[in-house]
Design a protein around this nucleic acid. Structure first.
Lengths: 151, 151
DNA sequence: TTGTATGTTTCATTTATTGAAATATATCCG
DNA sequence: CGGATATATTTCAATAAATGAAACATACAA
């Protein structure tokens, strides 16, 4: 018995820190900005321009049927609209309405504050952190999204 | 109209990247390592040494009643045990069993691989990223966990 | 003591997620 | 062209998870 099982592992600590940051950001956003669920928030943020629902579902690692329900709710509240994809009439494009764009703008402002306050990092470190995150995002998007999902 | 609402904002991109990484890590862990739900995984990872349930719930930003149910499940599967806190007999300490420690060890190994693969970062950048994450974690833990929760 | 605060549990309600089956359209191939 | 098969989304019923109020036990303070 080396006791390694009783110690924190660096990767473990990283994962827990990511979780802590992720949920802290959501909690801050729950208290300010537009009144949206966590999933709804992420949908809105991912819609600067229209996107296919299946595409969105894959990126968000949700089942298509889960995204359908999310989109229904956002549509009912007038934040998004479904439009047929002209390139493939089976698919729907999800597009923000005027109110949707306004909500997204407001959200982005609150996210900026939340990030600063939650991380507590000075400007330059936050930039380093952000640059690494973008590289990670690009890698995840390129490398293929997680395999295990039932698509 | 400046079109700012149609552009991605840097903080928005960061938040989305954090979400993408968070869920990608979980998805990878769903496919390998011990068979645990996402929440159960995080509980196990946070238990290198025994901790109070309320303390855990606060850190994980869960309601006490949610953690009770999680702990019930883990206890039923023989991974954790409740022990009265000698310092406050109202409180329970959650402690890993032998099997719990084994599962946590296995988990930590898989987390390391998942982090490498998901981020795609070379060793040195991953270290920079990790160091920033630990600073963020320390800030969040010190600054007070998110306020809006019903504790 | 007594009163109030804290740590946890219970349980009923609400909310979210899953997955199988259905619909519509696309694509491939003979 | 026509038929088989694949893909994008929806529907809906079943399951799982989170929420919050009430209860219980213990702590702490006056």
């Amino acid at each position: 018995m080396t006791g390694a099982d009783k110690r924190d592992s660096a990767p473990g600590e990283m994962m827990l820190s990511i979780a802590l940051l992720y949920w802290s950001l959501h909690d801050r956003l729950d208290c300010s900005g537009p009144d949206l669920s966590k999933r709804e928030r992420l949908v809105l943020m991912r819609l600067p321009t229209p996107r296919r629902m299946g595409d969105l579902a894959r990126t968000m690692q949700l089942l298509p049927s889960t995204l359908t329900v999310l989109a229904d709710g956002l549509e009912k509240r007038g934040l998004v609209e479904r439009q047929r994809d002209p390139d493939d009439r089976r698919a729907w494009l999800l597009e923000l309405t005027k109110e949707g764009h306004a909500a997204r703008c407001e959200l982005n402002e609150v996210v900026e504050i939340a990030l600063r306050e939650a991380t507590g990092l000075p400007e330059d470190d936050l930039e380093v952190f952000g640059a690494l995150l973008l590289r990670i995002r690009d890698h995840i998007m390129a490398d293929g999204l997680p395999k295990g999902l039932p698509f």
